[in-house]
Amino acid sequence: MRTYCLTYDRLNDIDPNRFRRFVVLLLALGISVLFLFVVKDFLMPLLLAGIFAGLLRPVYRRVRVALKGEMQRHR
């Protein structure tokens, strides 16, 4: 059975580009987790706002068309 030990010689064998990609991926993942932790209380209201905006758009269009004449008179 062979055991692996991280020695100075093994550190020199690591591909720098692969290591750089791993570090960037790890940082992006960490920042994403921290971002979600900060905005977790706002996610549900944002989701509901998007849903209601989409559902009420036809009503807004009808009201806008119905009031178009009224809006031009008040200008």
Rank of each mutant, 00 (worst) to 15 (best):
D13T: 11
V65F: 12
Y8T: 03
Q72D: 12
L43I: 10
L46D: 05
L36V: 05
L47M: 12
L48Y: 11
F19C: 03
L46A: 10
L11F: 13
T7V: 03
I31G: 00
F22E: 01
V63R: 14
G54C: 10
K40I: 00
V24N: 13
S32I: 05
R21N: 09
M44F: 01
D9N: 13
T7G: 09
M44N: 00
C5K: 15
K68V: 01
G30Y: 06
R57T: 12
L46I: 02
R18S: 03
R62Q: 13
L46G: 09
D15Y: 04
D9Y: 08
I31Y: 10
V63A: 15
L46F: 04
K68D: 14
V63L: 15
V23N: 03
L11C: 13
L55W: 01
I31S: 00
V65I: 11
R10G: 01
R10V: 03
L6H: 05
L46K: 00
V65C: 06
M71F: 15
P45W: 11
F22M: 01
L46N: 06
G30K: 04
Y8R: 05
D13W: 09
G50I: 06
N17S: 06
N12M: 13
V38P: 00
T7N: 11
H74G: 00
L47T: 03
P45D: 04
M71D: 13
I14R: 11
G50H: 10
A28P: 01
L56D: 04
Y60M: 08
A49I: 00
F42K: 06
V65G: 06
F52G: 05
Y60C: 05
P58T: 15
S32H: 08
M44H: 02
L47I: 08
L11H: 05
F22R: 00
M44E: 02
N12W: 15
V39H: 15
N17W: 05
L34N: 07
N17E: 10
R10Q: 07
L29M: 07
R61H: 14
K68R: 14
R10D: 02
P58G: 15
L34Q: 11
Q72G: 04
R61D: 14
P45E: 06
